[in-house]
């Protein structure tokens, strides 16, 4: 991993922007390149939070490492910028220790699916009540455009200068088959349904997963003849087809030839980890011995915590 790229957007968030209250303005300008989709996804997320009715202070955000990993540093919430690939297990610890919090993991495809791939599938299987938002820009941005497990076959990256020989993961299929309660995919072009989906994901019980296809013109678009940010948005617009409820193994992403299948693929009620835990322990150990696990039992009383 190299350090952050020097390309910086010099456009600060406009004064009196509706985002101002939600961002750490003293940290602007952000590090994202012109045409990058991460900022759009952040806007959608903030809007979704506002619509969700979740009390702001009860929402915590966890990121890993990478361009999207910086989101936690910009959004004014209790925010945790962790290690590469490990945002999900951090979030699980945070959630289990503090069950009244809503915990969101906001990170990139390399972080969540390559180095963090094992945690991703196990978290979906374990079904702890957290939301994972994956900004998928098909590449490693922070380190300068290396191949990712989401990079299309034959795409060009700095570490596959002659083309990627491997097939990419279908993230929604991966999440679905691992047991996620809620699985959806949109692009940064589809802001309205994306806001709605993020809101829904935030309020679902269990492991919810939202994939957001996002342009990386600087490091992916340029090398793969997809043009600049606007060109990639045009691809998203023209090649996307919405297929709610489609079996995830048929939910393909093909930026070159289409289609880019978007929509809500899975929304199945499944008991979340903590519900199962408390029910099962009460049954197995008995009311007399089991202390139900929750915000009350986990917190020491105020007066003793000086």
């Amino acid at each position: 991993m190299r350090g952050p790229r020097t390309t910086q957007s010099l456009q600060a968030v406009p004064v009196n922007s509706p985002m101002e209250d939600w961002l750490r303005m003293d940290r602007m300008p952000h590090i994202w390149c012109p045409g990058c989709g991460i900022g759009t996804a952040v806007n959608c997320f903030v809007r979704a939070v506002e619509l969700s009715g979740i009390p702001r202070k009860k929402l915590a955000i966890v990121s890993g490492i990478g361009c999207t990993g910086r989101v936690a540093g910009y959004i004014k919430l209790d925010s945790f910028h962790t290690t590469h690939g490990r945002a999900i297990p951090f979030a699980i610890g945070l959630k289990l220790a503090s069950p009244d919090l809503h915990v969101v993991v906001f990170s990139g495809d390399g972080d969540l699916i390559a180095i963090g791939g094992n945690h991703f599938i196990h978290a979906a299987r374990r079904n702890v009540n957290i939301t994972v938002i994956c900004i998928n820009n098909l590449t490693y941005g922070m380190t300068g455009g290396q191949v990712a497990p989401t990079s299309p076959k034959h795409s060009i990256a700095t570490t596959t200068p002659y083309g990627n020989l491997e097939s990419p993961f279908n993230l929604v299929h991966l999440a679905d088959s691992s047991g996620a309660s809620y699985v959806a995919r949109y692009t940064t072009f589809h802001v309205r349904p994306l806001v709605h989906t993020m809101k829904e994901a935030l309020t679902k019980n269990g492991f919810s997963f939202v994939e957001v296809l996002s342009p990386c013109p600087t490091l992916y678009g340029r090398r793969n003849r997809l043009g600049d940010g606007l060109d990639i948005m045009r691809v998203f617009k023209e090649k996307a087809i919405r297929r709610d409820g489609l079996s995830t193994d048929a939910a393909f992403v093909d930026l070159k030839n289409g289609p880019i299948v978007i929509g809500k693929f899975k929304d199945r009620p499944r008991e979340a980890f903590l519900d199962v835990y408390n029910d099962a322990m009460t049954r197995v150990i008995g009311k007399d011995h089991f202390i139900p696990y929750g915000p009350v039992t986990m917190r020491p009383p105020e007066d003793e915590s000086e």
Partner: peptide, 25 residues
């Protein structure tokens, strides 16, 4: 009133406790 979770590996275990500590326990 406590909880043990067997995680998928030591990487996950070692950061889950950091998350939990920030959760107040």
């Amino acid at each position: 009133g406590g909880m043990f979770v067997q995680m998928e590996d030591e990487l996950a275990s070692s950061i889950a406790i950091i998350g939990a500590a920030w959760g107040g326990v």
